[in-house]
Simulated assay, not measured.
Amino acid sequence: MFCYIIVDFLYLSSFDRRLCHVSVPVNAIDFYLDIRRQIEEQIQGFAEPISDKLLPDLHPLEQHVFTLVLDLNETLVYSDWKRDRGWRTFKRPGVDAFLEHLAKFYEIVIYSDQLSMYVDPVIERLDSEQRIRYRLSRGATKYQDGKHYRDLSKLNRNPGKVIYISGHALESCLQPENCLQIHPWKLEADDTALLDLIPFLEFVATRQPTDIRSVLASYEGKDIPPEFIKRSLEHQRRVQEQRQGRSLWRR
């Protein structure tokens, strides 16, 4: 009987509710309110990341270290299904060298919208040397408008020292100012996107800009690897000209 009472009560107008209020048992109303509260809490728990601090505090000696947040699918790996063999996951070209080199400079974090039952075994096979410090899966995302978003504000890190790299960066992250878009990988054998990013990322880690967001903003609308090389060559040219100018003045 309670189920019918609750359903009817949900669909009544506010005026009808006032009219029938006296006829609905108080315990039925309390039961409805309790169920609604539980449902709202479950929905909220599903929609929000599992914690406001998804990562533990950085060690005091590592406060200067930048955090490199990497998506998984079509960024580091690609998974597909075929009738004759089922699911298979492939490594993107250069992923081993990319992780090996940048682990010297960055705290590396995987942040995926996939379930942990998929993410964990993939990472274990991808990163046998344990260069990836932390892995975050669907439970750490924010569910909004029917999609699971990475919320970098929950990482417990200085937002000026976080870079998020994904083949779908702007579509999957709530902080576009921290995003570095990479070409989505779909099994192209000649792909070099990860390796091409290494010089820029190493430069950032060694030069320690105050806020990476302003650096990324300066590359907006440009392909970072070739643009970084162009700027580096231009900087070297200006330095060389200045040196030559000083030499002429001394003579």
Score class of each variant (00 low, 15 high):
239 V>R: 15
157 R>K: 13
20 C>L: 14
74 E>V: 11
122 V>G: 02
42 Q>V: 14
53 K>D: 12
72 L>Y: 03
164 Y>Q: 09
14 S>Y: 07
95 V>R: 08
234 E>G: 13
54 L>F: 08
189 A>H: 12
107 E>G: 08
183 H>A: 10
51 S>T: 11
251 R>A: 05
47 A>N: 14
222 K>S: 00
194 L>F: 06
215 V>K: 02
42 Q>K: 14
24 V>Q: 00
1 M>G: 15
90 F>V: 06
225 P>F: 00
51 S>V: 09
150 R>H: 15
246 R>G: 10
21 H>R: 09
223 D>V: 12
110 I>W: 00
114 Q>S: 15
176 P>E: 15
101 H>R: 11
186 K>E: 08
29 I>F: 01
111 Y>S: 09
173 C>L: 05
246 R>E: 14
191 D>I: 08
159 P>T: 09
34 D>R: 08
158 N>K: 08
57 D>R: 01
15 F>V: 13
49 P>A: 04
177 E>C: 08
166 S>V: 12
136 L>R: 06
43 I>Q: 12
136 L>A: 07
48 E>T: 10
197 L>E: 01
83 R>E: 14
119 V>L: 00
181 Q>F: 06
79 S>A: 14
33 L>E: 14
17 R>V: 02
21 H>T: 04
171 E>P: 10
32 Y>D: 03
1 M>P: 05
106 Y>R: 03
28 A>G: 00
195 L>G: 07
175 Q>L: 10
63 Q>F: 06
